[in-house]
């Protein structure tokens, strides 16, 4: 069982679930961090899937693409499916860990959402500038074609949302009415997804911040009178 430690997590959030991973103690992920070299290697492997096909790619192909050996790959992943699951975990853990930690630093809703939006932009732009995760959506689409992986992807997405919705629920007293919390949380989840795509489309740093700031007007409009930021 492999779990990713979450820095700065407080007991205000639901307990973290862990996924049954297949990585050994030689796992190159340490404290939830993946070296830039390994991020590039994972991305190269997804490129192999895209060009050679998930069905036809072998663990050997992945070893060549990642610049490692077949032994190394086989030591960590018994199958291509396990590789995909690990690549998904890598992507989500990196974002979720960081975003949860930012979320936990702010007790009030508006500063929390603002900080998470800005952090998300920074992380996404960092990845875009480094040229990693360029084929993330292909990986997600491959995963969609496998029922087990698809289920795991949904669980990961849900887990990320749970913490975010929890923050809105926790701070619902700041909102005009209690029942706005879920729809607002989903609205911001939509904004995150949209921002992630706009980063891939090459939207400028400045424009990304403008989008985040516009979206924050929605939250400001739902806050009870007297709560200003």
């Amino acid at each position: 069982m492999y779990s990713f430690p979450i820095a700065g997590e407080r007991d205000c959030c639901p307990p973290l679930k862990t996924y049954s991973g297949t990585m050994s103690s030689l796992d190159p992920i340490r404290d939830g961090e993946l070296s830039p070299e390994l991020e590039t290697a994972l991305d190269s492997c997804v490129k192999v899937f895209m060009l050679q096909g998930f069905q036809h790619s072998t663990l050997e192909d992945l070893a060549v693409a990642s610049g490692t050996s077949r032994d190394f790959i086989e030591k960590h992943f018994a199958t291509k499916e396990q590789f995909c699951a690990a690549a998904m975990r890598w992507y989500f853990s990196k974002f979720y860990r960081q975003l949860r930690s930012v979320l936990a630093l702010h007790s009030e809703l508006y500063p929390a959402v603002e900080a998470v939006l800005y952090e998300f932009i920074e992380l996404s732009r960092e990845q875009y500038d480094a040229g990693t995760a360029m084929r993330f959506h292909t990986l997600m689409d491959i995963v969609e074609l496998d029922p087990d992986l698809s289920e795991e992807l949904r669980k990961m997405k849900l887990e990320g949302m749970e913490h975010f919705i929890f923050k809105f629920t926790q701070c619902k007293g700041e909102l005009n009415t209690d029942d706005e919390a879920t729809a607002l949380a989903k609205f911001y989840a939509t904004v995150f997804e949209g921002l992630s795509i706009m980063v891939q489309h090459g939207m400028s740093h400045e424009d990304l911040y403008s989008m985040a700031n516009l979206s924050l007007e929605v939250l400001a409009n739902h806050l009870k009178k007297g709560i200003n930021f």
Binding site: L153, R154, K157, K186, A189, T190, V191, F192, E193, G194, L195, S196, I197, M198, M203, D207, S210, M211, L214, S215
Partner: peptide, 18 residues
């Protein structure tokens, strides 16, 4: 651009079962 961003987000949310 804000609405283009929201539309991209809606696509992803629906795709993943919202």
């Amino acid at each position: 651009h804000y609405f283009l961003t929201v539309i991209e987000g809606l696509y992803e949310m629906i795709k993943y079962g919202t």
